[in-house]
Design a protein around this nucleic acid. Structure first.
Lengths: 209, 209
DNA sequence: CATTAACTTTACAAGGTGTGAAGTTCCTGT
DNA sequence: ACAGGAACTTCACACCTTGTAAAGTTAATG
């Protein structure tokens, strides 16, 4: 007989799979609507229509819940298809534009979740690990684009593939996107257009096509 | 006889002024060194060499303590002198460069404090008010620069004084500065140089002086 | 129809914020 | 010199959060 702790996160019958999804949806909805300090385990449980303890049957801690929400959201929003135009771009300048679009349109929908993971990353080692993994992934995307830019001779003067990737990575941070789409009320489309301008002018040699 | 609550924040004799400063310094030091969730009232008290309750004699809440630290830091770091080159610049392009320097050199020293105020801004109405005031001030600085750029005909095509100020304001956010100086290990000087490049190329017509 | 996973309810420990009140120390003014 | 009071300490408490524990209930499954 397995100890009950081994079941956490992997319940076996149908009933629980629904409940787990309900919890993730509830947490997601709460995170996008309220500040993450208001998204307590009790609030998530109530929004999902279960008891507070039931949440702990699926997620060992608050931080791990948020991590699961992040995976859930990546799947629900189809991260892979949002990035496809970047990888399938014919040339690096097109990839750069596609990356600006990805940041503006995808990241503006992750604000609550990513912020929650960020804030629970101190003290929760698993959340810290997920954060590191995400950061690496995101930075890797930037780096691919800047490497391509450099290879095609588009990278302008003071920049190296590394420093250019650093900048792009900082510009895809949640706070940056949230400041502009939230506080300054830019629409995702406006953000996309202006990020394209920023990337092309700041990082690339003047070709203006 | 005044009720004792009216004394909070304005003690009257010498002994307490020293203690208050010690608390502010202790909180500042802790905030720059540790994550803000570790900076508890007890930790601040211990670092300042007083009891936890003594902190409440000077600051009614954790949020208000952080607000006071922010004022304290602005004074200690001489905010006004850091901004002087911006206001005294002969032309708007020089002001823009000076603003990039200010962001890189000044904001990189505010990271812990500003983040703490940001995070205690939900639930603490006073912290929210201070945040709004700071935001307005910072945005006002950006707007002055972009207005000057527009007046002198330097503002490039898609930008208006408003949207350019929005962007500059987002680029002076703590997270952006922290991502680059912390995670990506840019020095403040490197950040200053690269922000100048970004601002000049993204926002200004090509004059390249 | 017995088993068992999933869920509920209740209880609790630990640690944070903020309030309250009594006691101590030391400055200050008369 | 000494009374008053401001600043601080200590102890105690209410309330909220996370996370653990255990016993009871429901319902799917074999």
């Amino acid at each position: 007989m397995m100890p009950s702790v081994a079941r956490i996160g992997t319940p076996q019958n149908q009933r629980s799979r629904d409940t787990r999804a309900a919890m993730l949806d509830a947490a997601w909805e709460l995170l996008e609507r309220a500040g993450d300090s208001e998204v307590t385990m009790a609030a998530v449980a109530e929004a999902a229509g279960v008891s507070r303890q039931a949440v702990y049957l699926h997620f060992p801690s608050r931080g791990q819940l948020f991590m699961a929400v992040m995976d859930h959201v990546d799947e629900a929003l189809d991260l892979h298809s949002s990035l496809r135009p970047v990888w399938e771009a014919a040339d690096s300048l097109t990839a750069l534009d596609a990356f600006a679009d990805h940041i503006a349109r995808y990241h503006s929908r992750l604000i609550g979740v990513v912020r929650a993971v960020d804030r629970s990353r101190h003290g929760d080692d698993d959340a810290a690990a997920l954060w590191a993994r995400s950061t690496e992934l995101w930075y890797g995307g930037c780096r691919s684009v800047t490497d391509a830019l450099a290879a095609e001779g588009h990278l302008a003067d003071p920049w190296t593939p590394t420093t250019a990737a650093d900048l792009m990575w900082a510009l895809m941070s949640i706070e940056f996107v949230d400041d502009l789409t939230g506080e300054r009320s830019w629409t995702p489309d406006e953000l996309a257009t202006r990020l394209r301008v920023l990337f092309r002018r700041t990082l690339c040699n003047a070709t203006e096509d």
